[in-house]
Design a protein around this nucleic acid. Structure first.
Lengths: 245, 245
DNA sequence: ATCTGCAATAAATCAGACAATATTACCGGG
DNA sequence: CCCGGTAATATTGTCTGATTTATTGCAGAT
C-alpha cells in the first residue's frame, strides 16, 4: 500500500516534524527557531516548503513570525488544541496519562449535554443515522478494528444532530479521544465490545426524547471509558517496567 | 493609528477575503476554486501569496487541494469552527442570530463545568489572577470598553485554572462570544456593568471551594448574557427595519 | 466492455532575487 | 554618563519563472 500522498509531501512532512519538536517541548515556549534558510538546509527542502510548513503551524497558533525578529514558539495558551491535526501530532508523540485524562474530562463535559440536546431537538433523520451507526457496531462483533469506525460515527452523529456548528467542530476532539481509546484497547481486546449496551441505552433514551436519561446514559458510558483507559494505561506502565514478561 | 502589520500583509489579507467568500456561502461546500494563477491575478498578488493564503485556510479545514484536481471547499463538518481567526471572520461577516445562539449554547455547556472544576482544583495563584481581573472590571465602572478586557481575562482565568489544555483552547471561543456581546452592547450601554455582581458571586463560590455553587452561579451569568444578547438582537432587528429613528 | 499507456493539467516544489520592517548599534547632544 | 534619534542590518515577506509530481481523461489495444 503506497502511503497517502499527503504524508509524503515535504511541506506536510516537515510541518509534522517541527510540530513534534514543539509539542514534545524540545523547542519550548518563547524559543526562537532557526532561520528559514537554516531550516531549509536542515530538513533538506527548499525555503518554499519550509514556509509552507511554518504557515500551517502559524494557522494552528503554535508559532508566530515577525520580520527581522524571527519565528518563535507561542505560549501554549494560544495553541489551538482542539484542532484535529494538532491532536493527532500530540497523541502520536506523547501518549501520556495526563493527555488522556484531560481529553476524557472534556468529553465528559460536552458529550452528555450534546446527548441531551440531541434527545430534545435532533431530527428523526439524524437519529436514524445514529441508529445505523449503532447497528454496524453491533455487526462488527468482536472485531475491534471494524468496531471503531461506526463507533466514531455514533458519537459524531450525536454532535451533528444537535445542529450546533461548534459542537460539530468538537467532533475532532472526540475523534482523537476515540482513536486513543482504540489504540489502548489492543492491550485489552474485549473492551470495545463491552461498550455496546451502553451505546444502546443512550440511543434508547434519545429515541424516547428523554434529555435527562440521555445525559445520564452518556455519563455511564464515559465512566466505562475512563475505567478502560486507566486500566490500559496501568497495564502499559507495568509492562514498560517489566518488559520481559 | 497605523493598522497592525499583519493586516496589511497580502497573504493574511487575501486569506481573510477568501475565507469570507467561503463562510458567507458565495463559494459553497464542494465548490472548486479558481486556479492559483487566476486567483493571483484576481487578487492582484503573486501566486506565492495566494499559496500562503490557501495554506492557512487548509490548516483550518476550510479547503483541500489535490494536484491536477484543483482546490475545493470542504464540507462544514471539517471546518475548525473553534479556531480564533475563523470565529472572527465568521462573526465579522455574518453576525446572525443563529451564530449567537449556538455560541451561547456552547458556553453554557462548558463554562459552568469549568467553574466547578476551578472551585475544586484551581490553585490559589490562579484564583488570585481571576480576583485581579474582577477588581479591574469593578474599577472600569461604566466605561464599557475598559470593562471588556478584564472581563475576558476573568473568563479566561477560570478556564486556565482548570489545568485542562483543551478547556484553555476553548478560550478562543469564549473570546469570540464576549467580543460579540460587547459589540452588541453598544446598543445597550448599561448592560455590561450589570453583570458585575454575577461575576462576584461566581468568584465567591470558587474561593469557597464550592463546585456546585460555582456551577450554578455561572449558569445565572449565562442566563443574564442570553437576555442581553437577545434583547440587543431584537433591538437591532427593529432598527434595521426602521433605520430613521 | 475493460484495461493500459499517454498526454494534458494543476498543484507542489525549487531557485534566486528584491522588498519591507523590526531590531540593533552607533553617534551626537544634553 | 545617559538619552534620543538615525542608519545599518538581519530576517521574514513577496515576487518571478522554471521544474517536478500526481491525477485525470482519453485513446487505443485486448
Amino acid at each position: 500500500m503506497p502511503k497517502p500522498t499527503e504524508a509524503r509531501q515535504p511541506s506536510n512532512h516537515v510541518a509534522r516534524e517541527i510540530a513534534n519538536l514543539i509539542v514534545t517541548g524540545v523547542w519550548q515556549e518563547g524559543f526562537t527557531l532557526p532561520r528559514e534558510i537554516e531550516l531549509a538546509s536542515q530538513f533538506d527542502v527548499s525555503r518554499t516548503s519550509i514556509r509552507e510548513s511554518l504557515s500551517i503551524l502559524k494557522a494552528k497558533g503554535l508559532i508566530a513570525a515577525r520580520q527581522k525578529a524571527g519565528t518563535h514558539v507561542r505560549e501554549r495558551i494560544n495553541w489551538n488544541m482542539l484542532d484535529a491535526e494538532l491532536l493527532d501530532w500530540t497523541w502520536a508523540q506523547r501518549p501520556s496519562e495526563e493527555f488522556a485524562r484531560q481529553l476524557l474530562q472534556v468529553r465528559r463535559i460536552v458529550e452528555p449535554e450534546a446527548s441531551a440536546i440531541c434527545a430534545e431537538r435532533g431530527s428523526d433523520t439524524a437519529l436514524a443515522r445514529i441508529e445505523r451507526a449503532y447497528r454496524e457496531m453491533d455487526a462488527a462483533g468482536m472485531d475491534s478494528s471494524a468496531y471503531s469506525e461506526p463507533d466514531l460515527r455514533f458519537h459524531h452523529g450525536i454532535l451533528t444532530a444537535t445542529g450546533n456548528e461548534f459542537l460539530v467542530a468538537f467532533g475532532a476532539t472526540v475523534e482523537a479521544a476515540l482513536r486513543m481509546s482504540f489504540e489502548l484497547s489492543t492491550l485489552n481486546p474485549g473492551a470495545p465490545r463491552k461498550s455496546l449496551p451502553y451505546h444502546r441505552a443512550i440511543l434508547d433514551e434519545i429515541w424516547a426524547r428523554n434529555p435527562d436519561g440521555a445525559r445520564a446514559a452518556m455519563h455511564r458510558l464515559m465512566d466505562l471509558t475512563e475505567r478502560n483507559i486507566s486500566s490500559a494505561l496501568a497495564r502499559r506502565k507495568s509492562s514498560d517496567v517489566l518488559p520481559a514478561t
